[in-house]
Design a protein around this nucleic acid. Sequence first.
DNA 1: CTCGCGTTTAACAATTTTGTTCAACACAAA
DNA 2: TTTGTGTTGAACAAAATTGTTAAACGCGAG
Lengths: 201, 201
Amino acid sequence: METLSTDVERLIKDTAKRIFFVEGKLHATTQDIADAAGINRASIHYYYRSRKILFDKVFEEAMAEFHAKLTVVVSQENLTFRKLVESVIDFLLKKSLEHPFLELFLVAELNQDPHLKHARLPEEARARRMMLKEYIAEEVAAGTMKPIEAEHFIVNLISLCSFPFLAKPIVKNAIELSEEGYVKFISERKAVIMKLIFLDL
Amino acid sequence: METLSTDVERLIKDTAKRIFFVEGKLHATTQDIADAAGINRASIHYYYRSRKILFDKVFEEAMAEFHAKLTVVVSQENLTFRKLVESVIDFLLKKSLEHPFLELFLVAELNQDPHLKHARLPEEARARRMMLKEYIAEEVAAGTMKPIEAEHFIVNLISLCSFPFLAKPIVKNAIELSEEGYVKFISERKAVIMKLIFLDL
DNA sequence: CTCGCGTTTAACAATTTTGTTCAACACAAA
DNA sequence: TTTGTGTTGAACAAAATTGTTAAACGCGAG
């Protein structure tokens, strides 16, 4: 049946994503994925001719997801800059909570195959960065932020949001947290980051 | 010869580290390592009985290296807090420049095998964190920092220093940098981070 | 019912990666 | 030179992973 087949196809891809992006098991085999999905490994070859095709698909969507993540950093209109940054942090943290190891996967793949096509940034991205620069200038003028290059601002934001998830096992160990302690720690991040960015918080 | 043998043994391990920590090729095989080292793959088995033993050795030393990294964050005496933070950032950035993908490797391994022994933190680490809290309190009193939990402070510092290296391929793409542009960007990080942490910079 | 069709499965085959063996080699010591 | 020891290389073997095939299965349409 058409819908069912699509279901399994989806199940396979979603399971692969879960293993890579959520569990961070970058060395997972097709068998691992089949087991986790509760299907026969041959089904993977039925829907995706080869391991590489499945992986490429997953990679491609991961790139798209990250790109979306990034786009949000400098999009959204009709908001005060403050509200915008807040919603960006919410978004980044939410995405990292869903897919803590997305960046891990992307970087591992990109390093393996350095000539993987880099998603070309749309022209509007550059325009948005200009807008971000203006926003920052306004805050600086108002004395609520220090001068900072937009590029550093963006990287700071992503670093502060993503790293604690991406490096969960070492962060947990480094500051001696239980699973609950880690969850609590994560829940405090937004306030910490906002406070770090804006002088008047 | 004793010294020569040790040399090759070292060469193998160092090459493995280079591939994992510097080039970030987490999926490298023993053949890849042998090729990169310019030796026969059997030599790897001669010095290290199996792939796993080599990998464990590399992993163990990576943990030690990260642990050293972390220890520095809250050690060093006879320095103003300001100077201490500065030297910590220098150290973290230097380490990340040498081994940009160290954390990537560690996290990938830890995720694969969740019961890998976590290096127990020495008792002094806790004492140092106490000291860090005091330092922060002093800066807060002086109006040169905002109140922040020591744990968040540590994670912020590591995030801001390590992430731009660890995620180099996506950062480069995200803010459209050439290799030279990336190097320049990295060289600006220290000032950016210091400015973010201390209110009076 | 049974036919058709998409899907699943188990078994098999090919490939890749890892591990082993043994003869050849280098070289220092006797 | 010869011997001994440690190292290397090529060939081989084993294991793990991926890819293929064909038969069986489920199920709706005719």
